[in-house]
Design a protein around this nucleic acid. Structure first.
Length: 177
DNA sequence: CATCCAGTATATA
DNA sequence: TATATACTGGATG
């Protein structure tokens, strides 16, 4: 199953005490979330707050996103999430992301455990790839996946974010890296 | 301990 | 078609 080729998105800013995140919505729901470093997107989001798929749904989803994101950044369970549009991902990636959402707040799993959970115990490395391709970090907790030795591994939004998010949830990492 | 390798799904060139 | 990855466990020097 190949991901959908193209789609139109609505960008909306989510101001938090950690900076301005950018949420991306499709007609199906929340389709992406960017860390505050994406300055270009931030400006686009400011300039054209809503058009494209203007519906009251998006505003409703956005309130849920903003609330969930702030709770997640505080190290608490995000609570109710808006519908997530994962149609940009392959079937494999969607299974990985689904498994990620089952990791509880303050808990972690290894890439290998995720691979087992989706029934492909050898596709460990591919799981890493799927985590990196996760379009909705923080709310789809790719940061709770550690290497087998309980060390950090990588993080597309920057390892600092991964460390920070885990620390706020009270997760203790192996020392060194 | 340092390398290397297979196995896997994707992306990129 | 080849190579490189947010991996991991086992083999080898």
């Amino acid at each position: 199953m190949k991901p959908k080729a193209k789609a139109e998105f609505v960008l909306l800013p989510v101001p938090t005490r950690d900076g301005k995140f950018i949420a991306r919505y499709s007609e199906k729901g929340l389709a992406g979330l960017e860390f505050p470093s994406a300055v270009g997107l931030a400006r686009r989001a400011d300039r054209t707050p809503q058009r494209g798929i203007p519906t009251s749904s998006i505003r409703r989803w956005h309130r849920a996103t903003a609330a969930a994101l702030k709770r997640a950044l505080a190290g608490r369970a995000p609570g109710v999430l808006p519908p997530l549009d994962v149609s940009v991902g392959t079937a494999f990636q969607q299974r990985v992301w689904s498994a990620l959402r089952k990791i509880g707040c303050g808990q972690t799993q290894s890439y290998g455990e995720i691979a087992q959970a989706i029934g492909k115990p050898k596709a460990v490395r591919a799981v890493g790839g799927a985590c990196g391709a996760n379009p909705i970090p923080v709310l789809v907790p790719c940061h709770r996946v550690l290497a087998a030795n309980r060390k950090l591994g990588g993080f597309s939004g920057g390892l600092n974010w991964k460390r920070t998010l885990l620390a706020r949830e009270g997760v203790v990492l192996a020392s060194g890296r």
